[in-house]
């Protein structure tokens, strides 16, 4: 278990990694990566029954994680590397020819920690539900976690998976939404008017928890509450309120950083704002 201060330091380092990775690759998705950083760091360092030493794609006897919002590879890869799944130096290869760190998650390069390909949106929750059902068939009590985007939740398949998970009583499925309110073309409310996600998931029959995606205590409580749902016969959706680009003032709260790369002087400014950590850059 990591303390709150340790989690903070890891998150700061992950945000530094995210920015440096996308700047080195001259492409990638920093905004949503920075809004989901605290959640993913908390999950991997304090809540998942998962470790680099025992990782296997079939997740036998351990928890699994699916990144449904596949473009969030910067935060995913950095978190995996910082958790020890592969060398942090490999983060420098992000999106380069021959890399295991493909633009969107791939199982073809056998990067430890990656259970399934994703990137075409709306599909990961179905895969997560399938893994959860497989664990039920195997009489396993491990959890399957799945990160969805709020923009991604405009995809109809998300709601198909939502229905399926309730019907098959997948209480070992814990989905969470990075509810940052932004997508490529603008604020979610102006693009598709998704409305009240909490009411929608409740109506679908899920246990719904709303939490602050940048407060480690709130994140901690949310995951604990979600895990307590095992035995309830219901899947859980945590809606984490978050800010796109969190941690850097000129990136925060706007869709403009969904898939944009900071200029060199912006990178310097951003890294100064984040500050350094004892973990060190890759």
């Amino acid at each position: 278990m990591q303390t709150k201060d340790q989690l903070k330091a890891i998150s700061t380092q992950v945000r530094r990694d995210i920015l440096r990775m996308v700047c080195m690759a001259k492409s990638g998705h920093p905004g949503g990566s920075m809004s989901s950083t605290d959640i993913l760091v908390s999950l991997y360092f304090n809540h998942m029954n998962q470790s680099p030493a025992t990782w296997r794609r079939d997740a036998k006897g351990q928890d699994a994680f699916i990144l449904s919002a596949g473009h969030l590879t910067p935060v995913y890869y950095s978190t995996l590397a910082r958790a020890g799944y592969f060398p942090v130096s490999e983060l420098a290869t992000f999106r380069q020819m021959g890399t295991r760190l493909q633009g969107h998650p791939s199982v073809r390069k056998q990067l430890p920690g990656v259970f399934q390909a994703s990137g075409s949106l709306g599909q990961g929750l179905s895969a997560a539900a399938g893994i959860a059902l497989g664990k039920k068939l195997d009489k396993e009590n491990n959890f399957v976690f799945c990160l969805c985007g709020d923009g991604e939740s405009e995809e109809g398949q998300i709601w198909e998976a939502g229905m399926f998970a309730v019907h098959h009583k997948l209480d070992n499925l814990i989905a969470f939404t990075d509810w940052n309110g932004q997508q490529i073309d603008g604020p979610v409310a102006s693009v598709a008017g998704e409305g009240d996600l909490a009411a929608k998931w409740e109506a679908w029959g899920w246990r719904v928890i709303v939490a602050d995606g940048h407060d480690f205590e709130s994140i901690d409580q949310a995951f604990n509450l979600a895990k307590a749902g095992l035995g309830s016969g219901q899947p859980t959706m945590i809606l984490f309120k978050s800010d796109m680009g969190h941690g850097v003032d000129f990136m925060a709260g706007t869709h403009k950083w969904h898939g944009s790369v900071p200029k060199p002087e912006q990178l310097e400014d951003a890294l100064n704002q984040l500050g350094t950590t004892p973990l060190g850059d890759f």
Partner: peptide, 18 residues
């Protein structure tokens, strides 16, 4: 149910578990 897209994904998930 009548939700083929989810069926494909769920099958992939089941396959991941063996």
């Amino acid at each position: 149910g009548i939700a083929e897209a989810n069926m494909v994904g769920a099958a992939a998930g089941l396959a991941i578990t063996g």
